[in-house]
Design a protein around this nucleic acid. Structure first.
Lengths: 243, 243
DNA sequence: CGGCCCGTTGATAAAACTCAAACGACGTGG
DNA sequence: CCACGTCGTTTGAGTTTTATCAACGGGCCG
């Protein structure tokens, strides 16, 4: 029986929504998370949340806003390794004296919370593990996208993945979502140039699959689009069939 | 004081060598590993070690031989997500009812061992965590390669990574290593076509950087090559400076 | 001997990049 | 209130990189 302020529908924080969908999080654990969320700190856009080669820092979570894990090359090229959306975790896989394998940068203004330790409530460890598995699955998806997808497929696949992930955190409308990325960021994520992203977006737009007003993406028919590029939803466990 | 049969130099199994370099593995833990290695089972080349969407199975390790994690697309395209070398672990990051996010295929004949549980000896958990962190770092490197490297850079970077990883398991000569991959597999790993891999290999060969006799790769000057493409060794912890 | 796998080569086509410039929206300062 | 700069998007022309298709050759094994 959901209690007011923790309902799954709309009022909960994306972090709470997501973790509750990833594991059977106990009431105490939800309390610990809620407490952590109230203590979350803001980070301005373009600020680093972690630096490649620097200390990894304690496990954290994105409470609101978008961030990107990226790799910077010596000559200025850069590659966004993965996007961090509200509800995503940072640095849960730790080892002694861990250093960060990538730079994490806030794309929008971001609120970051310190994650409660897995032992501060039943189900937390499971939810963290599930989140971690999802993250790895998304890395694999990114590799397949970059290695074997055409530019058009990459764009469609990425938008579908975002739709899926934001949906898990309760942040989608029925047919789209708020999109803070610029075309240049999409290009850095998909291994393309901004110009080419622009042109391929126009193709998708003209074919009626995708509408991209700055700030918002509308997927006209996600299911058909997914089928067209051969995409199936990311699944990492049978225990939670939706993901 | 190393004991006979467990010396770091050459006689040890690549799995033992690698894990001992990744963490301070206790003598009991080494015993458990050695026992697991004697019980390892052979898998023929081209056989599956795991199937995408199937049960993940218990944590295992590659004792000898090479394997590949790959993603298969509906239309026959395929992308090798990562290579599994002797000493690498499979499925250490687990969660309830885990399913495999990728297909794992034996490239050569492979020997696979069941991993001792992390509690069967001090230091094992650390070593597993370090291995897991290394694996993630290599996934990130793969993403940057595919997204932002030219074909030539991809080839050089991949060979340098293999040199580095095989070195950690004690499987390199001073200037190269045994290479069981076909050019087609390299292509599937680097997101290229076999023809293009062939042509770029010839360029590298003529420029004197890389010698690729079938079955063996020689890196004429790894340090200079690494500098040329802006590659620095993968590091995931300050506790073990080499890696 | 014959077939197959792997590496190699050539000719051509497609995909994506580069460079350059213009345009609209937006905010800022005069 | 308008001029101005910035940022993100859009457009055009020409080039480079990579893919495609097709074929051939050598080694190895049955």
């Amino acid at each position: 029986m959901p209690r007011p302020g923790l309902s799954d529908s709309a009022t909960g924080s994306p972090l709470l929504t997501r973790l509750r969908r990833l594991g059977a999080v106990s009431v105490e654990a939800q309390g610990a998370l809620a407490a952590a969320i109230t203590l979350s700190v803001p980070v301005a856009a373009r600020r680093d949340l972690a630096t490649e080669g620097g200390e990894l820092g304690p496990p954290r979570a994105i409470v609101s806003g978008w961030a990107a894990r990226m790799r910077l090359l010596a000559d200025g090229r850069r590659q966004i390794v993965s996007l961090l959306l509200p509800g995503d975790l940072i640095g849960v896989r730790r080892q002694v004296s861990a250093i960060s394998p990538s730079t994490v940068i806030a794309i929008t203004e971001v609120a970051v919370a310190l994650l409660p330790h897995a032992c501060s409530g039943a189900g937390l460890a499971d939810a963290y593990a599930m989140s971690s598995a999802l993250e790895e699955a998304h890395l694999l998806a990114q590799i397949a996208r970059l290695g074997r997808f055409t530019a058009q497929e990459r764009i469609a696949d990425m938008l579908l993945e975002l739709f899926e992930r934001l949906g898990l955190a309760g942040l989608t409308d029925p047919d789209g979502f708020a999109m803070p990325l610029t075309q240049e960021m999409v290009a850095d994520s998909l291994g393309l140039t901004p110009v080419h992203v622009n042109r391929m977006l126009q193709v998708a737009r003209r074919s009626g699959e995708i509408v991209w007003r700055p700030g918002r993406v509308t997927l006209v028919d996600p299911a058909t689009l997914a089928q067209k590029i051969g995409r199936s939803p990311v699944v990492v466990s049978r225990a939670f069939p939706r993901y």
